[in-house]
Design a protein around this nucleic acid. Structure first.
Length: 256
DNA sequence: ATGGTCGGCAACCGA
Protein backbone atom coordinates (compact mmCIF):
# COMPACT_ATOMS: atom_id res chain seq x y z
CA UNK A 1 0.00 0.00 0.00
CA UNK A 2 1.33 3.39 -1.07
CA UNK A 3 0.02 6.56 0.58
CA UNK A 4 0.84 10.22 -0.03
CA UNK A 5 0.02 13.76 1.01
CA UNK A 6 0.29 17.07 -0.83
CA UNK A 7 -0.68 20.61 0.05
CA UNK A 8 -1.91 21.49 -3.44
CA UNK A 9 -2.42 25.24 -2.82
CA UNK A 10 -5.47 25.38 -5.13
CA UNK A 11 -6.71 22.22 -6.84
CA UNK A 12 -7.71 24.33 -9.84
CA UNK A 13 -4.18 25.69 -10.28
CA UNK A 14 -2.51 22.27 -9.92
CA UNK A 15 -5.07 19.72 -11.09
CA UNK A 16 -2.86 18.47 -13.94
CA UNK A 17 0.14 18.12 -11.61
CA UNK A 18 -1.92 15.97 -9.26
CA UNK A 19 -3.47 13.86 -12.04
CA UNK A 20 -0.06 13.27 -13.65
CA UNK A 21 1.49 12.40 -10.31
CA UNK A 22 -1.27 9.89 -9.53
CA UNK A 23 -0.84 8.22 -12.90
CA UNK A 24 2.93 8.02 -12.44
CA UNK A 25 2.91 6.82 -8.81
CA UNK A 26 -0.47 5.04 -8.61
CA UNK A 27 -0.90 5.65 -4.85
CA UNK A 28 -3.62 3.78 -2.99
CA UNK A 29 -4.37 6.93 -1.01
CA UNK A 30 -3.56 10.60 -1.66
CA UNK A 31 -4.53 13.31 0.82
CA UNK A 32 -4.76 16.90 -0.41
CA UNK A 33 -4.92 20.13 1.56
CA UNK A 34 -5.72 23.72 0.59
CA UNK A 35 -7.94 22.76 -2.34
CA UNK A 36 -9.51 26.26 -2.10
CA UNK A 37 -12.78 25.36 -3.80
CA UNK A 38 -16.38 24.86 -2.70
CA UNK A 39 -17.69 21.31 -3.08
CA UNK A 40 -19.68 22.15 -6.21
CA UNK A 41 -16.45 23.38 -7.84
CA UNK A 42 -14.30 20.37 -6.91
CA UNK A 43 -13.08 18.55 -10.06
CA UNK A 44 -14.46 15.19 -8.95
CA UNK A 45 -14.94 13.80 -12.47
CA UNK A 46 -11.26 14.36 -13.32
CA UNK A 47 -10.32 11.84 -10.63
CA UNK A 48 -13.10 9.44 -11.57
CA UNK A 49 -11.86 9.58 -15.16
CA UNK A 50 -8.57 8.00 -14.03
CA UNK A 51 -10.43 5.40 -11.95
CA UNK A 52 -9.97 6.97 -8.54
CA UNK A 53 -12.53 7.83 -5.89
CA UNK A 54 -12.49 11.13 -4.08
CA UNK A 55 -14.18 12.61 -1.02
CA UNK A 56 -13.75 16.27 -0.15
CA UNK A 57 -14.90 19.28 1.78
CA UNK A 58 -14.00 22.78 0.77
CA UNK A 59 -14.91 26.44 0.91
CA UNK A 60 -14.29 29.52 -1.18
CA UNK A 61 -10.67 30.81 -1.23
CA UNK A 62 -9.31 29.09 1.85
CA UNK A 63 -8.64 25.64 3.32
CA UNK A 64 -10.27 22.56 1.80
CA UNK A 65 -9.26 18.88 2.10
CA UNK A 66 -9.71 15.80 -0.05
CA UNK A 67 -8.94 12.08 0.11
CA UNK A 68 -8.34 10.32 -3.20
CA UNK A 69 -8.25 6.53 -3.27
CA UNK A 70 -8.25 3.50 -5.55
CA UNK A 71 -10.81 1.73 -3.36
CA UNK A 72 -14.06 3.50 -2.47
CA UNK A 73 -13.66 5.18 0.92
CA UNK A 74 -16.04 4.16 3.67
CA UNK A 75 -17.33 5.82 6.81
CA UNK A 76 -16.53 9.34 5.59
CA UNK A 77 -16.56 11.95 8.33
CA UNK A 78 -16.07 15.66 7.98
CA UNK A 79 -14.76 17.80 10.84
CA UNK A 80 -14.57 16.74 14.47
CA UNK A 81 -17.19 14.31 15.76
CA UNK A 82 -20.60 15.90 15.92
CA UNK A 83 -19.27 19.16 14.51
CA UNK A 84 -18.71 19.86 10.82
CA UNK A 85 -17.46 23.38 11.43
CA UNK A 86 -13.81 22.42 10.87
CA UNK A 87 -14.65 20.13 7.98
CA UNK A 88 -12.56 22.09 5.51
CA UNK A 89 -9.52 21.24 7.64
CA UNK A 90 -10.35 17.68 8.72
CA UNK A 91 -11.72 14.75 6.75
CA UNK A 92 -11.67 11.09 7.77
CA UNK A 93 -12.38 8.00 5.69
CA UNK A 94 -11.74 4.28 6.02
CA UNK A 95 -9.75 2.70 3.19
CA UNK A 96 -8.49 -0.90 3.16
CA UNK A 97 -9.98 -1.14 6.67
CA UNK A 98 -7.60 1.58 7.85
CA UNK A 99 -9.00 4.88 9.13
CA UNK A 100 -7.28 7.76 7.35
CA UNK A 101 -7.36 11.21 8.96
CA UNK A 102 -6.39 14.07 6.66
CA UNK A 103 -5.71 17.38 8.42
CA UNK A 104 -4.85 20.90 7.38
CA UNK A 105 -3.75 22.31 10.74
CA UNK A 106 -4.18 26.09 11.20
CA UNK A 107 -0.92 27.83 10.39
CA UNK A 108 -1.00 30.12 13.43
CA UNK A 109 0.46 33.31 11.86
CA UNK A 110 2.65 34.29 14.83
CA UNK A 111 3.11 32.96 18.41
CA UNK A 112 1.93 36.25 19.90
CA UNK A 113 -1.38 36.33 18.05
CA UNK A 114 -4.72 34.79 18.91
CA UNK A 115 -4.46 32.60 15.80
CA UNK A 116 -1.62 30.78 17.57
CA UNK A 117 -3.90 29.97 20.52
CA UNK A 118 -6.43 28.74 17.98
CA UNK A 119 -3.77 26.48 16.47
CA UNK A 120 -2.88 24.98 19.86
CA UNK A 121 -6.55 24.52 20.71
CA UNK A 122 -7.02 22.82 17.35
CA UNK A 123 -4.30 20.31 18.27
CA UNK A 124 -6.12 19.69 21.56
CA UNK A 125 -9.44 19.09 19.77
CA UNK A 126 -7.68 16.75 17.34
CA UNK A 127 -6.12 14.85 20.24
CA UNK A 128 -9.57 14.43 21.82
CA UNK A 129 -10.94 13.33 18.43
CA UNK A 130 -8.32 10.58 18.16
CA UNK A 131 -8.73 9.58 21.78
CA UNK A 132 -12.52 9.30 21.57
CA UNK A 133 -12.86 7.66 18.17
CA UNK A 134 -9.77 5.52 17.59
CA UNK A 135 -7.42 3.18 19.39
CA UNK A 136 -3.64 3.52 19.47
CA UNK A 137 -3.23 -0.27 19.30
CA UNK A 138 -5.00 -0.49 15.93
CA UNK A 139 -3.97 0.64 12.47
CA UNK A 140 -4.55 4.36 11.97
CA UNK A 141 -3.08 6.86 9.50
CA UNK A 142 -2.77 10.58 10.17
CA UNK A 143 -1.58 12.60 7.21
CA UNK A 144 -1.54 16.15 5.97
CA UNK A 145 -0.11 19.60 6.44
CA UNK A 146 0.59 19.76 10.19
CA UNK A 147 2.18 23.21 9.94
CA UNK A 148 4.82 22.08 12.45
CA UNK A 149 8.40 21.01 11.85
CA UNK A 150 8.86 18.49 14.69
CA UNK A 151 12.65 18.37 15.14
CA UNK A 152 15.74 20.55 14.63
CA UNK A 153 16.63 18.46 11.57
CA UNK A 154 13.33 19.55 10.02
CA UNK A 155 14.21 23.24 9.56
CA UNK A 156 17.14 24.94 7.87
CA UNK A 157 18.26 27.00 10.88
CA UNK A 158 16.87 25.49 14.09
CA UNK A 159 18.74 27.78 16.50
CA UNK A 160 17.47 30.87 14.76
CA UNK A 161 13.97 29.55 14.02
CA UNK A 162 13.12 28.09 17.44
CA UNK A 163 10.15 30.05 18.71
CA UNK A 164 8.96 30.97 15.24
CA UNK A 165 5.58 29.90 13.96
CA UNK A 166 5.67 26.23 12.87
CA UNK A 167 8.80 25.60 15.00
CA UNK A 168 7.68 26.65 18.47
CA UNK A 169 8.12 24.73 21.76
CA UNK A 170 4.34 24.80 22.39
CA UNK A 171 3.78 23.17 19.01
CA UNK A 172 6.46 20.57 19.78
CA UNK A 173 4.77 19.82 23.09
CA UNK A 174 1.47 19.39 21.25
CA UNK A 175 3.02 16.94 18.78
CA UNK A 176 4.75 15.07 21.59
CA UNK A 177 1.36 14.25 23.10
CA UNK A 178 0.35 12.54 19.85
CA UNK A 179 3.56 10.48 19.99
CA UNK A 180 2.74 9.48 23.56
CA UNK A 181 -0.77 8.53 22.46
CA UNK A 182 0.76 6.12 19.97
CA UNK A 183 1.73 7.87 16.73
CA UNK A 184 5.02 7.41 14.89
CA UNK A 185 6.48 9.85 12.35
CA UNK A 186 6.76 7.38 9.46
CA UNK A 187 9.06 9.55 7.35
CA UNK A 188 11.59 9.88 10.20
CA UNK A 189 11.45 6.15 10.79
CA UNK A 190 13.04 5.66 7.38
CA UNK A 191 14.96 8.87 6.73
CA UNK A 192 17.42 10.12 9.32
CA UNK A 193 19.03 12.87 7.24
CA UNK A 194 18.35 16.54 7.82
CA UNK A 195 17.42 18.97 5.03
CA UNK A 196 14.53 16.76 3.91
CA UNK A 197 11.90 19.41 3.40
CA UNK A 198 8.31 19.51 2.16
CA UNK A 199 7.77 23.28 2.17
CA UNK A 200 9.62 26.38 1.03
CA UNK A 201 8.22 29.86 1.52
CA UNK A 202 7.49 31.60 -1.79
CA UNK A 203 8.84 34.79 -0.30
CA UNK A 204 12.33 33.35 0.21
CA UNK A 205 14.17 33.65 -3.07
CA UNK A 206 15.83 30.51 -4.46
CA UNK A 207 14.58 28.77 -1.33
CA UNK A 208 14.90 25.24 -2.75
CA UNK A 209 18.44 25.75 -4.08
CA UNK A 210 19.48 27.44 -0.83
CA UNK A 211 17.80 24.66 1.22
CA UNK A 212 15.66 27.14 3.17
CA UNK A 213 12.87 24.66 3.77
CA UNK A 214 10.68 23.14 6.42
CA UNK A 215 9.38 19.57 6.91
CA UNK A 216 5.80 20.37 7.92
CA UNK A 217 3.82 17.86 5.83
CA UNK A 218 3.60 14.48 7.45
CA UNK A 219 2.57 10.85 7.39
CA UNK A 220 2.13 9.55 10.91
CA UNK A 221 0.81 6.11 11.82
CA UNK A 222 0.07 4.18 14.96
CA UNK A 223 2.89 1.83 16.01
CA UNK A 224 1.13 -1.30 14.77
CA UNK A 225 0.86 0.22 11.29
CA UNK A 226 4.21 2.03 11.29
CA UNK A 227 5.87 -1.34 11.89
CA UNK A 228 4.61 -2.40 8.48
CA UNK A 229 6.01 0.63 6.67
CA UNK A 230 8.85 -0.21 4.31
CA UNK A 231 9.97 3.18 2.97
CA UNK A 232 9.13 6.87 2.92
CA UNK A 233 10.30 9.75 0.78
CA UNK A 234 9.67 13.29 -0.38
CA UNK A 235 8.99 13.69 -4.09
CA UNK A 236 9.95 16.98 -5.66
CA UNK A 237 8.22 16.09 -8.90
CA UNK A 238 9.77 17.71 -11.99
CA UNK A 239 6.46 19.35 -12.74
CA UNK A 240 6.66 21.26 -9.52
CA UNK A 241 9.63 23.07 -10.97
CA UNK A 242 7.69 23.96 -14.13
CA UNK A 243 4.73 25.17 -12.14
CA UNK A 244 6.03 26.62 -8.89
CA UNK A 245 4.60 25.07 -5.77
CA UNK A 246 5.45 25.77 -2.17
CA UNK A 247 4.82 22.21 -0.95
CA UNK A 248 5.85 18.78 -2.24
CA UNK A 249 4.43 15.29 -2.13
CA UNK A 250 5.39 13.13 0.84
CA UNK A 251 5.02 9.40 0.26
CA UNK A 252 5.16 6.19 2.29
CA UNK A 253 4.78 2.50 1.50
CA UNK A 254 3.44 -0.23 3.76
CA UNK A 255 3.74 -3.98 3.44
CA UNK A 256 0.00 -4.54 3.50
C1' DA B 1 5.07 40.93 14.30
C1' DT B 2 11.15 42.36 8.51
C1' DG B 3 10.29 41.35 3.57
C1' DG B 4 9.88 38.50 0.12
C1' DT B 5 5.67 35.71 -3.65
C1' DC B 6 1.87 33.10 -4.71
C1' DG B 7 -3.47 31.85 -5.34
C1' DG B 8 -7.70 33.75 -5.25
C1' DC B 9 -10.35 37.47 -5.75
C1' DA B 10 -11.33 42.09 -5.24
C1' DA B 11 -9.69 41.83 1.76
C1' DC B 12 -4.00 46.47 2.47
C1' DC B 13 -6.27 38.02 2.79
C1' DG B 14 -3.61 33.76 4.30
C1' DA B 15 0.34 31.24 3.75
Amino acid sequence: MKVASFNVNSIRARLQIVLDWIQKETPDILCLQETKVTDDEFPQTSFEAINYHVVFRGEKSYNGVAIISKIPPGNVRVGFSGDESEGTRLITATINKIPVVNTYIPQGVHPLLKQFRYKLEWFQRLYDYFDKNFRPDRALLWMGDFNVAPEPADVHDPDHLLGNICFHPDEHTALQRFREWGFVDVFRLHQRESEQYTFWDYRTKNAIARKKGWRIDHIWATRALAKKSTKAWIDIAPRLLEKPSDHTFIVAEFDI
